[in-house]
Design a protein around this nucleic acid. Structure first.
Lengths: 231, 231
DNA sequence: CCAAAAGTGTTGGGTATACACCCATGC
DNA sequence: GCATGGGTGTATACCCAACACTTTTGG
């Protein structure tokens, strides 16, 4: 054991951080939660929410901590996406960062955000960010576009009860496509994971749509392993 | 700028390593390249090929360096998969590691391996490895199973010219399924990325199959963006 | 001629796509 | 009653899964 300790002590060390790409959905747009950079060189630029990883902290824990400290939320979808290590990515020296992607419902969380430098920004209008954060967001956005087609992640961005129109708007916004409404409905109804709550939309100035919930239990039980070569 | 440097210098630091899960295909089995652990506590156990990340080295470069130093190969498929940070994953103390997955053709590389503690082991027969390396291999294997269905990665594991039977054996071994030969052929021919070399298998004691090459150029040009919700 | 694997087509069922009309609500 | 979006069905094309026989080669 002593040899192992000695070995590790001889290793070069470097700072490690986590950066959270926190997605939300509002006004039919996919948005990401940003904060003003606190570095002089990036004055005025937006940056991701991130923090150092402590010496005795696991990466997932560090990412959850960032979420908790920034949004007050603990029960949020979170997933490690990629680690970035360009030598010049941080102006203060070598810092490696692990990017996490997080999905949350803006409505559930808006009251908890007090720091007024926090800001939900449309993913489509991003430019000129601090560090390599644009690159990190692009990676997470690509990951999201892919994952939302294979897993029921989108529901994390919606209220617990949602209309099919909202769901479709979400998919259209994230995938940047237009989908046929009837086929979209057929698709989701045929999956049979939507629970009709019996409730209707309110405060809408046209015929109200039905509200549904996603049946996560049923989904978990029926997860299948897909074989299908396609490239 | 000075503030940024000072800030980074105040960050906790830790050792960072890369571990390469190097897959190969031989005797119709998916294999992974392992080495005897050099730590006393793991005496006799197998471990992945890995190394520290140098202070001024990017992660991809470190992973390529490991490959080059261990196999002599430079032109090998390599992809960052996941970062592992459990506090007790290394008996010598806190070490974070970034796992890379690599695919190579064993035949092209076998002569370059001189260290006789290096060893190709069947993925199916893995057990009881050093560190958290079993977990890392599992993650990379899952990644491979998924990716090989969406991207033409498998060809990195085969010789440049291969028969359809070899290709099918590869898919069956990695996905751990049996596939219908006629449908498999139809599938690949309909993709239209296989070039008939006009050559035939040799030294085979039955009717020889045709040898094909994968048309990477054509594939790159025709990459399409898929929209298809399915979970 | 025998063994072993290569090579080849068809059919049926299910799934994706394209498309148009009536309905319920608010104003 | 009109504007707005909710809700529904059908026909077609495509793709996937299932399935058996003939051909070529080596020995």
């Amino acid at each position: 054991m002593a040899d192992a300790v000695q070995l590790v002590q001889s290793y070069p060390q470097m700072p490690l951080t986590v950066d959270c790409v926190i997605f939300g959905f509002e006004e039919n747009k996919l948005k990401v939660l940003l904060i003003r950079s606190d570095l002089e060189v990036y004055k005025g630029k937006w940056s991701l929410l991130g923090d150092i990883v402590k010496s005795t902290e696991e990466l997932d824990d560090a990412a959850y901590r960032v979420l908790r400290e920034r949004t007050g939320m603990t029960d949020v979808y979170l997933k490690q996406v990629q680690t970035f290590s360009k030598l010049n990515r941080h102006p203060g020296g070598r810092v490696v960062t692990v990017a996490y992607c997080s999905l949350l419902n803006i409505r559930h969380h808006e009251l908890q955000i007090t720091d007024n430098e926090l800001h939900w920004q449309s993913v489509r209008s991003l430019k000129d960010m601090a560090f390599d954060h644009k690159e990190i967001i692009d990676a997470c956005y690509n990951w999201l576009q892919k994952s939302i087609q294979e897993h029921p992640l989108g529901f994390n961005l919606l209220p617990e009860k949602f209309s099919l129109r909202e769901l479709q708007n979400l998919y259209e916004a994230i995938l940047n496509v237009e989908l046929d409404r009837r086929n979209f409905r057929k698709k989701f109804f045929s999956m049979d994971f939507l629970i009709d709550t019996g409730e209707l939309e309110e405060d809408v100035k046209h015929r109200p749509g039905k509200l549904y919930q996603f049946n996560f239990d049923k989904y978990e039980k029926s997860k299948r392993k897909w074989i299908g070569i396609d490239f």
